[in-house]
Design a binder for these strands. Sequence first.
DNA 1: AACTTAACCGGAGTCGGCTCCGGTTGGCAA
DNA 2: TTGCCAACCGGAGCCGACTCCGGTTAAGTT
Lengths: 187, 187
Amino acid sequence: MSSQQVRPLRADAQQNYERLLAVAARAFTREGAGASLKTIAQEAGVGIGTLYRRFPTRETLVEAVYRNEVARLCTAAPALVAESPPVDALRTWMEQFIDFMAAKHGMADALRAVLVSEDERMHTRGLLRDALATLLDAGVADGVIRPGLDPYDLLMGLGGITLIAEGPGQRDLALRLVDLLINGVRL
Amino acid sequence: MSSQQVRPLRADAQQNYERLLAVAARAFTREGAGASLKTIAQEAGVGIGTLYRRFPTRETLVEAVYRNEVARLCTAAPALVAESPPVDALRTWMEQFIDFMAAKHGMADALRAVLVSEDERMHTRGLLRDALATLLDAGVADGVIRPGLDPYDLLMGLGGITLIAEGPGQRDLALRLVDLLINGVRL
DNA sequence: AACTTAACCGGAGTCGGCTCCGGTTGGCAA
DNA sequence: TTGCCAACCGGAGCCGACTCCGGTTAAGTT
């Protein structure tokens, strides 16, 4: 139905795209997700217009930079289920998620965009949802987690925790809130 | 201990302060909490510098504008406890909080600032915490809520829900998350 | 090789946030 | 009344976000 024209990028455009991602990754690591986009564009040797054409918002750029790392976290979910009791696996996964988000200083706004966006190009949200679905299903199968829950709700709950407790000294708070959340989904 | 010098404002400063608040209230209602501060300053007949001296960040201005309304919400907590079972009272209060936040479009950033800020001038956070403490205590007394919970945690949890689900079509999501949260604090 | 054009490029320009500091003044003391 | 100064005022100026469009070019066509 929708126009999924993916016509490969022109060679020069492809290079610019990759250079932007590489430079942005360095910049975000160095100065947090609030780094100046103009500077990133300059360092990548392109105009600011080119950056914005490729990444309409700061959040799309952040998402692109960290897409791989988030994907790795998500694909790790089945292994967790295999080696731990469901509730432990869920808690461990959520803890990793929180630590990941905290490590990328200032990433909260990007997360909000990814989670709230209607835009399905934000493929990352689907991955996260699926990871949580896996963890939930294991718990339901073991009869320790309330059935009928929408993994999307849980993802949003976790997102909320991350948004409110992303600061440096708030890891403990975040973990307490995760406990509350997990308690809420238990049977 | 701390320098609580509250020396009354000079007469002209006082007037400017009040005019800023009044104009900001109108502007926020009209265009959401993202309204141009420069415009607000102009409409209030002061320079942008004056606005910033009084309200160092956009969030402090938003907080000041809505302080009274939040306070009203908080003082309503005891009445809720008196007329409903504790868990219902808690749910009702949280629902009102969410509706209030949703009504003020774009208020989420201000909320985050109020909740996370170290700054105790953000008196509002204390009010919210106390309201939740009242609601929690009632539940603990009735033996339906887990004792030993820090109301601050619950406030942050609610704040997280508000941040992630502040959008227009997300009231249902927010309420489901509140249910999850309440479930987590139940015995 | 020459031509065509869709796709791409880049930066000038506009806008809002925020700072900084030289000029102004309310209110008190003498 | 007069003088003084702490407090206050305001906007010029800087910075970054984001838009817009005239010029450029890769890559397919003949």
